[in-house]
């Protein structure tokens, strides 16, 4: 019998190939050692916890394994459910790693988007340049790793159209982001090319406001909230794992929905 958990269409096998170096780069020894010590730990219900750092590295090794499983589960053609515009929460829910009072607004007139890495055209972008690209809209559920969610309506060019426009190497592994609030982030290329991955410049039909990432932020229907950096200032296409703000503190990198 066909499993009800299997996606309707299987992921492109190319994803596995694309991630082969990542999979190979996994610290096998660390994973083995980590898995064994975690297994021992689980069986002894925490009797061997004199070295909490060893436990954490074991958990991180399993988390990286889970990242690979998630990449395999990701179907590049599967669209997230969308909702009517009447369900959009206005204004959206604010979150950051700091209090809202510490938001530093960005001046859209002087703002420039740096482009670097495996791209043909490294010319910086203005707000008007982004507006000149074909625009997309989506009303999707924003899901935070904390558990809360809301329906949001986002518009802007797809990241795919931006990457095609700058002549990015679409076989590269990662797209990395730098932001005005010092919140580095990165995603896999398969997700970057998903039709519901936008460089959002508007919410609910209006220009993004300061606390929500004006002039441009990432919005993906297929990843948890913390993977969507606000106030983006630079985009890099790379094959070197760029990491991210929360990822460096322990959260999983792939974070796919």
């Amino acid at each position: 019998m066909r499993s009800p958990f299997r996606p309707d269409s299987l992921p492109d096998p190319a994803i596995l190939d694309n991630h082969r170096p990542l999979i190979n780069s996994l610290e096998r020894r660390g994973l083995l050692r980590g898995g064994l010590s975690l297994g021992a730990l689980v069986m002894l219900t925490g009797c061997d916890v004199k070295r909490p750092e060893a436990v954490k590295s074991a958990l991180l090794a399993i988390s990286r394994l889970n990242d690979d499983v998630q990449a395999l589960l990701f179907n590049p053609n599967k669209l997230a459910p969308t909702y009517p515009a009447s369900m959009i929460l206005r204004p959206p829910k604010f979150n950051a790693y700091y209090d809202v009072m510490n938001v530093k607004p960005v001046d859209g007139a002087t703002w420039r988007l740096e482009v670097s890495g495996l791209v043909a055209d490294k010319r910086p972008w203005t707000v008007q340049d982004l507006q000149a690209l074909p625009q997309s809209s989506m009303v999707i559920r924003h899901i935070c790793v904390e558990g809360w969610s809301y329906i949001g309506g986002w518009s802007g060019p797809t990241l795919r159209s931006f990457l095609e426009h700058v002549g990015a190497d679409l076989r590269a592994r990662y797209v990395a982001f730098r932001t005005a609030d010092d919140y580095p982030s990165s995603i896999d290329m398969a997700t970057a090319l998903h039709p519901q991955t936008l460089l959002a410049t508007a919410y609910g039909g209006d220009t993004l406001t300061d606390p929500f990432g004006y002039p441009v932020r990432l919005r993906m229907s297929t990843k948890l909230g913390y993977k969507n950096p606000k106030w983006i200032t630079a985009i890099e296409v790379t094959n070197t794992y760029p990491g991210g703000f929360w990822e460096a503190k322990g959260f999983p990198w792939f974070a796919g929905l």
Partner: peptide, 26 residues
Amino acid sequence: TPGGMPPPPGMSLAASTAMRFPQPVR
């Protein structure tokens, strides 16, 4: 908790709201 901090002592309610990026809402 870091979220939903009370206004700093001595600050008026209006001044503290102004620091919280007030957003239009119906």
